[in-house]
Design a protein around this nucleic acid. Sequence first.
DNA 1: CTCTTGACTGAGG
DNA 2: GCCTCAGCCAAGA
Length: 109
Amino acid sequence: MKPETLNFFEKVYEVAKLIPEGRVTSYGAIARYLGAVRSARMVGYAMNGSVGKDVPAHRVVNRKGLLTGKHHFEGTNLMQQLLESEGIEVIDNQIQDFKKVFWDPSKEL
DNA sequence: CTCTTGACTGAGG
DNA sequence: GCCTCAGCCAAGA
């Protein structure tokens, strides 16, 4: 595929798929890694097509560690269930010990 | 081409 | 530390 094919969306998917299990990251972190700090919203927007792309969107939350995107999942607690399955403690849409499980691609990668 | 919307973030009170 | 306002960027109508 040509470079142009690697759109913002595609890059987001690639990074998202690199998120280690039991870890989470923020839209801003991914955006910054892609060199688009001001496009954090686009990251989430891109996740709309994450379904069917093998992208663990449930590991991507906003900077507060809040599951803001859970409404885009099927159930109301599916996202939380997935995270807890990976050893991430989530209470009321809020990731516990967010700083500990936070994974910054621009630093870890 | 213009306007609206959005899974965000940072700054200010 | 919480709430509110404004900015930025891309896609869809």
